[in-house]
Computed example of a mutant assay.
Amino acid sequence: MLRNHQTIGEKTMKAFASDLDRTLIFSKKMLEQFPSQEPVELVERYEGKELSYISTKTKEHLLQLKNEVCFLPVTTRTTAQYRRIDLFQHEIKPEFAITANGAVILKNNHEVAEWSEKMRKDLTSLPSLQEVMQEAEALPIYDSVKKVRVVENYFFYYIVDPTIINHVDPQTLQAWGRARRWQVSWQGRKIYFIPEVINKWRAVQYLKEQLGWTAIVSAGDSYLDQPLVQNADRGIVPKHGELLNSQMQLSSTRCPGIKASIEITKQAIEGLLKKEVDLT
């Protein structure tokens, strides 16, 4: 049971829950798009390719947070993709992590069975993955799909030709999804189809209830991060984040790119470690 979690002092009472890609870690493309003189470190390789980097200062902030509160990575990546990030397997080893957009909770890198069982039960009331995948093939966008990826047998996404973005109404896709109780979210070249019971905040809230957290600072850049950013005591969006294009009033960093990650982790330290800072 998660309630057996024991830590000295107030560590279990506060958490920093953050998205990873384009929030804390960045691809070469992002580094080139938002150039900075900040020192960076490689944190992910795959099949011989260098994929993701983190600011040295951001890593220092995360180490400080990890030592005093619960640092909780929250990602849409599969568990295998999360484990590719060397930083979180060696230098910073979070006790808990959330993968597959909230469908999977890891404790000490092992899947929490009780949460996975809850997910499976919740999904029985919705159209199945196979049904939605089959129905989605009739959508107008399907002719532009280059690849189809299934995530942990919970949801799927399309990798599409980016030139079709201006020819498709996202609201029409979202309405199609709502009719099936599935979320449809367009993220660059990817279109995600995710059951509505799966979102990052539900998994964070489960941990909050199990572990007794009283304060959570969160961060995320994409529309899939909306529940996470909205429901935390303080939610932060990097200046480059597409989530800022929504109609919500959200707190943003001053700088885009990798500098945003430094601002985010600094604000998390101020909000969680300095008692005089009011999170409300």
Rank of each mutant, 00 (worst) to 15 (best):
T253L: 06
Q171P: 00
L129A: 02
E137H: 08
S18H: 05
M30W: 10
S144T: 08
W186M: 10
L42Y: 02
Q174D: 11
V237Y: 03
G235W: 10
E270N: 14
T253N: 01
K208Q: 14
D169V: 05
T76E: 06
V148M: 08
K14F: 07
L31V: 01
G102H: 01
P94D: 00
E95H: 12
K107I: 07
D278C: 13
S251H: 13
Q134P: 07
K146H: 11
E137F: 00
A136R: 04
Y158Q: 02
K59L: 09
Y53S: 03
Q210P: 05
E44G: 05
K11S: 09
L20A: 00
K200E: 06
I98C: 03
D143G: 13
S27F: 12
P195D: 00
S261I: 00
Q210S: 11
T75E: 00
Y192P: 04
L65H: 01
W115T: 08
S222D: 11
S36E: 04
I98A: 07
L87G: 02
P227M: 08
L279M: 00
K208R: 13
T99C: 13
A100N: 04
A103H: 08
L20D: 04
K59C: 03
K239Q: 06
F96K: 04
V151Q: 01
I264T: 03
Y206D: 06
I269K: 13
A100T: 11
P39E: 06
R22E: 14
V40Y: 08
S144G: 01
Q187T: 11
I164H: 00
R120S: 14
K14V: 08
P94R: 00
P227S: 12
G220D: 01
I92T: 03
M30A: 15
R149M: 14
T214N: 13
C70R: 12
Q226A: 15
Y53P: 02
E263Q: 10
A215C: 10
F34H: 12
A215D: 13
E209G: 03
E95V: 13
S125P: 08
W186E: 00
S144E: 07
F155P: 03
S185W: 09
N101E: 13
E95W: 09
S252V: 07
F96M: 04
N199Y: 01
Y46Q: 11
H240M: 00
W201F: 02
I54R: 02
L2K: 06
E68N: 15
R181Q: 15
Y154W: 02
